[in-house]
């Protein structure tokens, strides 16, 4: 198994400061490992991969990996990624976002990227809170939970990111947890290889900002909670609704063949090109005729002048 560690080191930027910036026991570190293993399994060259990240704890991830990377503004990771993909469709673009990044400030970009079925891989790290900025509640903080800006309990209801993406029309949607790291490797690998918008919601934990305020214990306890709350999609289908209360499904939740935006866009470009060529031919024909007429007239005028 030492190969696993060797593999990780193959993809890390060793000129960056290690150990990384995340708190002890943070799920982002486990996700980083899974992401690297997932990418390695696809066999795609380092230079053909672009990692785009937004702002937040998860945004730091792009700093540590040795691919083409882009650390963008808050919530706009998907818009930058859209630009990259459309400019060079050959690149494999992987977007890392936090829950606040993807569903609050970048919520509109998220649902529209899913609706368009852009050929991107979106990894949304859901830790139920804004960790880096001090524990403000996010769109995925559960109802009643405590946060720095919800001292009497959160009165808003949480988004379910994966289900949101399914409804918005993403090609592939899956959910994993950092506790089930081996499964997460598979989900990330599948998502990268999948054409179309592939979302992986990664259930992570923030024991510093969220766990501490909600008496959920440290990283170890929060990983145990993930183990208890996660139910495989196949098993969940057979479970009564009452038992699923407070739990979530993991695995591939949606996998469907839909027209991919980049390919559709290429078709439009092709048809537009053909149309323009036709128009160009017609116009240039007219222009030549007009040119000849003008020349003839000019010659005639010159003749007249000479006389």
């Amino acid at each position: 198994m030492a190969e696993a560690t060797k593999l990780i080191h193959k993809y890390l930027r060793h000129d960056k400061k290690f150990p990384h910036v995340w708190c002890p026991g943070c799920g982002n570190g486990i996700l980083l490992g899974s992401l690297i293993r997932g990418i390695d399994r696809t066999g795609i060259e380092k230079d053909d991969i672009v990692i785009v990240s937004g702002i937040g704890c998860s945004g730091r991830l792009s700093v540590y990996v040795d691919f083409n990377t882009l650390h963008t503004t808050h919530g706009r990771a998907l818009t930058f990624a859209t630009g990259i993909k459309l400019a060079n469709p050959k690149l494999n673009v992987i977007v890392i976002m936090g829950d606040g990044d993807a569903t609050a400030i970048g919520g509109n970009h998220f649902i529209h990227a899913a609706r368009r079925n852009l050929d991107l891989t979106a990894i949304v790290v859901n830790n139920n809170i804004y960790g880096m900025t001090g524990g403000q509640y996010s769109p995925t903080t559960p109802y009643g939970a405590m946060a720095a800006t919800a001292l009497y309990g959160n009165i808003e209801h949480a988004f379910s990111i994966a289900e949101l993406a399914v409804m918005a029309g993403a090609g592939m949607v899956s959910r994993g947890t950092v506790y089930h790291a081996a499964m997460l490797d598979d989900l990330i690998e599948k998502a990268i290889l999948r054409r179309g918008f592939a979302v992986v919601e990664v259930m992570s934990h923030c024991h510093i900002q969220y766990g501490r305020r909600n008496q959920m214990g440290d990283a170890v306890e929060m990983l145990r909670l993930q183990k208890e709350a996660a139910v495989r999609a196949e098993k969940a289908a057979q479970m009564p609704a009452e038992e699923m209360m407070g739990r979530y499904t993991i695995g591939v939740l949606a996998d469907r063949e839909l027209p991919v935006y980049t390919e559709e866009y290429e078709k439009v470009r092709k048809s537009a090109k053909e149309m323009m060529q036709l128009v160009g031919k017609a116009e240039s024909g007219d222009l030549k005729a007009a040119d000849k007429r003008r020349k003839r007239e000019a010659a005639g005028e010159a003749d007249n002048a000479e006389i």
Partner: peptide, 18 residues
């Protein structure tokens, strides 16, 4: 037993099992 659970889940890549 060399299951590698610790290696897969170490957030800091500080464990290696061989």
């Amino acid at each position: 037993t060399g299951c590698g659970w610790c290696e897969l889940h170490c957030p800091d890549f500080a464990i290696s099992v061989r």
